[in-house]
Amino acid sequence: MPVTVIGGYLGSGKTTLVNHLLRNADGRRLAILVNEFGELPIDADLIEADDGDVISLTGGCVCCSYGNDLMMALMDMAKMEPRPDHIILESSGVALPGAIAGSVSLLNDYSLDGILVLTDAETVQERANDKYMADTILRQLQDANIILLNKIDLISDDKKAALNDWLQEKTQSATIIHTQNSVVPIEIALQSFEHDGGFSADRSTHSTSQFETKFFALNNSIDVKALAEELAEVPEIVRAKGFVQNEDGVLKTLQLVGQRFEITPAPNEVEAGIVVIGMKPLPELKTLAATG
């Protein structure tokens, strides 16, 4: 079962994100593991059964608190029938999500998809200078595959750019996404950074107020590397994935997250085409449009 670890300090929007993902599960059976139920405000009409440590939700989703024993909770969850499609593990505000991910990887029933860390745009820099919490906050940022720079609406445009640069410097290679109320497409939040299981999000055109998804059927060949470099330069694009026919006629898989991309041989029997997900409004992507 794929696992996405959600980290971030108190007040950064983890619980809001978890609720957002539950409301937009779109048929996925999500299992949410939280340290404690605390402020998790699950709408009452979503709750089917509540037996203390496990809350069953409509649509086959489930929410469990793991208290002080995450590993036992995961091992218990592996016995659950039917199995959830995806595990979302919300770590505590002071936990290091990378360490949690390392532990999860020891369990044979689970595979780690990625680490998403939320930050509160208003307070993250202050916290990163806190007498007690500074190194914890910085280690959380370093562990991340995706950083949500949340509550972005609360800071000025000038500050946004500076904050983005600062975060870029603090993280290893995470994709930074600006969000409001933790709203991010589920395909982005739960994407896999660890292994290539084929692109399944391409049939979904799920979008929210801040993001949009575009699909381009690519009928013509093109220099894949040049295309990737071009897409990487478009700041609105947070992710792209698809199959592209290279100039030499060979079909390639292109995966792009933020400014990083990877080009690998495409699997057999796939059709050319690419999905681009980005902040609204996505600028006109002329090269893609021309290739399609």
Binding site: Y9, L10, G93, V94, T136
Partner: peptide, 22 residues
């Protein structure tokens, strides 16, 4: 959790098991 200068062998600082807020 150690104050400066941390562990004698240079190990990274330890872990918080609760946030200051809580």
């Amino acid at each position: 959790r150690m104050r400066w200068p941390g562990y004698y062998n240079g190990a990274e600082n330890g872990l918080w098991y609760i946030s200051p807020e809580h």
